[in-house]
C-alpha cells in the first residue's frame, strides 16, 4: 500500500518478494548459460554452475555452417517481415485511429480474430499452396505468414499509440505556416516514432520466437531459422544430443533479445498493455 509507512520490516518483506521474482525469471536462463560454458568432462555432472568454464561450445557453433546460415536466415526473415508489417500496420493503424470510414470495426475485429487464429490450422494448406507455387523452403515462404500474424499485433499496438498523439499540434503547425509535409515530418513523426519503435520490437520478438512455421514450411538449411535449426542439431553421433552446442546457440539467440528488452523495458510494457484494458 503506497499509503502505508515504509517500515524496515515491510521493506524486508518486499525485498523477499522481489527476490523470488528475480529467481523465477532468471533461473532457466542462468542454467542454459551455465550449460553452454561446461566442458565435455563436467557436462553431465548435474551441477547448476560450471566448475571449469570453457568457450568450446561457442567456437563449435560459430564454426558450424548450418548454424551461421540459420542465424542469417532468422535475422533476415524477421527483419524483412518486421519492416513490412510495420509499413502496412502503420497505414492501417493511422486510418483506424484518426479517420472515420465504414467497416472500421470490422477490420479491427478481423485482425483480432487472426491474432487468435490457430497457426497449426494453416500449416497443412500453406504447405500445399507453397509447394504448388514454388515458395516452399524459401525466405518468402516464411516472411508471408510472419507478416500476417504480426499485422494484428502491429495494428493493435500502433493504433493505441496513435490515439494518444495530440494531433491538434499538426493543425497548429500548419497555422504557423508549415506545409502539410513539414507538419507531418517535423511535428507528427517525432511524436509517433516511440510507438512505431516499440511495435517494431514486439513484432520482431514475435517473429524471432516462431517455431511451428519455421519447422513446417522449410526443409533445408536454406531458409531454416534458428529455433527450427536447434532441433535439427546433430551431435558427433546421431544418437548423442549435442547439449553444449544447443545451449550455446540458445544463448546466442537469446541474449541480444533479452538485453534489448531490458533496455526498453518501459516502452515494451506500455506496448504490451496498450489497448488490453480498454481501446
Amino acid at each position: 500500500m503506497s499509503t502505508a509507512v515504509e517500515t524496515p520490516r515491510r521493506k524486508l518483506a518486499w525485498s523477499g518478494a522481489n527476490l523470488i521474482v528475480l529467481v523465477y525469471a532468471f533461473i532457466p536462463v542462468l542454467w542454459i548459460v551455465s550449460l553452454s560454458l561446461k566442458d565435455t568432462g563436467t557436462l553431465n555432472d548435474g551441477k547448476f554452475w560450471p566448475s571449469s568454464p570453457t568457450r568450446d561450445s561457442y567456437s563449435q557453433i560459430f564454426n558450424n555452417p548450418d548454424f551461421l546460415r540459420a542465424l542469417v536466415n532468422s535475422i533476415g526473415i524477421c527483419a524483412i517481415a518486421t519492416v513490412c508489417a510495420l509499413v502496412f500496420g502503420t497505414m492501417a493503424a493511422y486510418a483506424i485511429a484518426r479517420l472515420e470510414f465504414p467497416g472500421k470495426r470490422l477490420i479491427v475485429g478481423v485482425s483480432l480474430l487472426i491474432a487468435m487464429f490457430p497457426q497449426i490450422a494453416l500449416v497443412t494448406p500453406l504447405f500445399k499452396i507453397e509447394t504448388a507455387i514454388g515458395i516452399f523452403d524459401t525466405w518468402l515462404g516464411l516472411i508471408i505468414p510472419y507478416i500476417t500474424f504480426a499485422l494484428p499485433l502491429a495494428i493493435y499496438t500502433l493504433s493505441a499509440f496513435f490515439r494518444e498523439i495530440p494531433w491538434e499540434l499538426e493543425k497548429a503547425a500548419k497555422m504557423d505556416g508549415a506545409t502539410p509535409f513539414q507538419a507531418f515530418r517535423r511535428v507528427i513523426t517525432p511524436l509517433a516514432m516511440p510507438g512505431v519503435f516499440t511495435t517494431a520490437i514486439l513484432v520482431f520478438i514475435a517473429c524471432w520466437n516462431d517455431f511451428l512455421f519455421a519447422l513446417s514450411l522449410t526443409s533445408t538449411s536454406r531458409s531454416r531459422t534458428v529455433p527450427a535449426a536447434l532441433s535439427y542439431f546433430q551431435g558427433a553421433t546421431t544418437f548423442e544430443v549435442p547439449t553444449g552446442p544447443i545451449a550455446a546457440a540458445a544463448v546466442v539467440i537469446t541474449v541480444p533479445i533479452v538485453i534489448f528488452v531490458l533496455f526498453f523495458q518501459r516502452r515494451i510494457v506500455a506496448g504490451l498493455t496498450s489497448g488490453a484494458v480498454k481501446g
Partner: peptide, 19 residues
Amino acid sequence: VRTSALVPYAIVTVVAAFS
C-alpha cells in the same frame, strides 16, 4: 522487478524448452 519479469517473455520458447 518489472524489468526482470519481462525476461521469460523475451526468451524464445524453444530455448526455454531446451533449458
